[in-house]
Computed example of a mutant assay.
Amino acid sequence: MKIQTLDTRKKNILIHVSILSSIILIVTLSFVISEENAFTLSFFTNYFLQATTSILLLIAPPVYVNIYWIIPRYLVKKRYFIYVVLLLIVIIGWGYIIGYGEPLMDHYWFNQPYQEMAPENGITGMIVIILVSTLLNLSYRWFIQLSKINQIENDRLHLELSLLKNQINPHFFFNTLNNLYALSLEKSDKTPSLILKLSEIMRYTIYDCKEPKVSIGGEITYLENFIELQKMRHHNRGIITFEKNIDNEAKQIAPMILIVFLENAFKHGFDHMEKNAFINFKLETTEELVHLYVENNFSDTENGNEGGIGLENVKRRLSLIYPNAHELKINKKNTVFTVDLKLNLE
């Protein structure tokens, strides 16, 4: 399942319309140039309509079936036998449609001289059409995949450096140490467990997050430790809730994506409010989907959570690691900020 925004779908439709229009225009002009008759508008219009109907009704359907159904479902997934069988069905079946349909269309719709129906010509044409469309689609897929691999690798290297330098916010880190120091002077029973949580956060960010993917369970433990340490810092400023419904904690996800939205909620909410602050953090997962919902309030003097490098970086990472497989909605209404993120893990 691919998740696409409305803007992406509109862009894709516009691209396909432009490509088809260009092909139709090129074919029309080639017909016109090849004729020895003098150019007239009616002459051009007739060939344009003939090229349009032939391409849209006879050529485009098998091409789209091949590149959007047969190739992704069977060739890409290495189900070669089914792929070959389906390809033969399309070539022979649609070859007959072209062989019988094109002469009839040309004769009855465009007053062309009647030509004998020849299904073998249609099948030959289909072989060429399928071969060209398959090679172009595979070349495009290879180019996109190579670009993504290079970009993700570069991004991972930069991320690794930033994790070592900036993963734990210095302000959060030093405040936590100061609070732990105060608790140790009071000989609080909470001190050992909080030190352990801080140690787990440091280990996770420095070592575990070097991997391109981590388990959902590891991310949840990191989030819970972060929340516990934040509760210690903020005491009675407000309420923090973390609701989770996890189908499989072993499922893999890119590291340090979910925490950005939680950090953002604290940075622009709790850190600037003396009381009545709240953060509602909800996380649900299935075998295919991760659904994160974060809701927090902020002070009237704050602009909300929208700005900052953190959100821009996570948007960039999402576009690279989960292209066409994520949906991110960020809203601000009055003094409440919400984030709704869906990740497709398949």
Rank of each mutant, 00 (worst) to 15 (best):
residue 229 L to C: 06
residue 266 F to L: 15
residue 263 E to L: 13
residue 261 F to V: 07
residue 55 I to Y: 02
residue 12 N to V: 10
residue 287 E to D: 04
residue 112 Q to A: 09
residue 63 V to S: 13
residue 58 L to K: 07
residue 250 A to T: 15
residue 213 K to A: 08
residue 88 L to M: 14
residue 328 L to N: 00
residue 8 T to A: 14
residue 256 M to F: 14
residue 292 L to A: 09
residue 114 Y to V: 00
residue 323 P to W: 12
residue 6 L to P: 12
residue 27 V to G: 10
residue 239 I to G: 00
residue 122 G to Q: 02
residue 13 I to F: 14
residue 278 F to G: 12
residue 124 T to N: 10
residue 145 Q to A: 04
residue 139 S to Q: 10
residue 111 N to Y: 10
residue 288 E to V: 01
residue 327 E to F: 14
residue 256 M to H: 13
residue 208 D to Q: 07
residue 215 S to K: 15
residue 328 L to D: 01
residue 39 F to T: 11
residue 323 P to G: 11
residue 309 I to C: 09
residue 318 L to R: 10
residue 310 G to P: 04
residue 236 N to L: 03
residue 194 L to D: 09
residue 175 N to K: 07
residue 305 N to G: 04
residue 215 S to A: 12
residue 334 N to M: 03
residue 162 S to H: 09
residue 70 I to H: 04
residue 274 E to M: 11
residue 174 F to S: 15
residue 173 F to R: 13
residue 248 N to T: 11
residue 344 N to D: 15
residue 243 E to A: 10
residue 64 Y to W: 05
residue 164 L to T: 08
residue 210 K to Q: 13
residue 295 E to A: 02
residue 157 L to C: 06
residue 28 T to C: 11
residue 256 M to C: 08
residue 265 A to W: 08
residue 259 I to W: 03
residue 260 V to R: 09
residue 326 H to Q: 14
residue 331 N to G: 06
residue 341 L to Q: 12
residue 130 I to Y: 06
residue 291 H to C: 12
residue 12 N to K: 13
residue 208 D to S: 08
residue 278 F to Y: 15
residue 127 I to Q: 01
